[in-house]
Amino acid sequence: MIAGVYQPGNSCFHRATPGLKLAALAIYAVALSVVEQIVLLMGLSALVLVAWQIAGLTWAQLSANLKLLIWILLALFGFQLFVAGFWRAFDTILTLAALVVAAALVSHTTRTDDMLDTLTAAFSPFARFGVKPEDAAFVLVFTVRLVPFVSIVGREAIDARRARGAGRNPVPALVPMVIRLMRETDALSEALVARGFGRT
């Protein structure tokens, strides 16, 4: 099973409802983009680091979140330094980094189940378009369960090609892999219908 990014804990962030956290994140995002004064912006950004500490998350987790982003941010910084000057460049990357860290904080402190329930509730107005929220929630969870299965099918397809002496290139293996996945889909959906899924 694939684990989510949730980090267990008992801070006030862990105890707050997902809806409250998402609302706070939205307000924080608006505040970051509205604030122009660099000192205020630095204060706002520092706030998210304080929150990170309060939530009991580690600096290693913080750097893991920024690991891939840092290169994009550095490139952006260099670019803006050239066209718009130091402070504007600083402003841009600080805003982006603070936003990403704040959003990561919400994900790290919210159980996947709770997030699913909140999103399901948030999407219930779409029921009138024929999308049942609980079906949508089921499909998301079902998809997570399918990922290891798809990986195994992919590995077998690559192994089968190697056994025929066709090399290790994974792209041609995609073809038998997808065809087998589509075949498995037929059996899977029959099993789901037999268990009452999709009945109105």
């Binding site: 499909v139 998809t143 997808v178 589509m182 889909t185």
Partner: peptide
């Protein structure tokens, strides 16, 4: 259901 499961399968892919 079959169409939906196909979508889920591609999402997993």
């Amino acid at each position: 259901v079959k169409a939906l499961v196909r979508c889920a399968m591609f999402a997993a892919l």
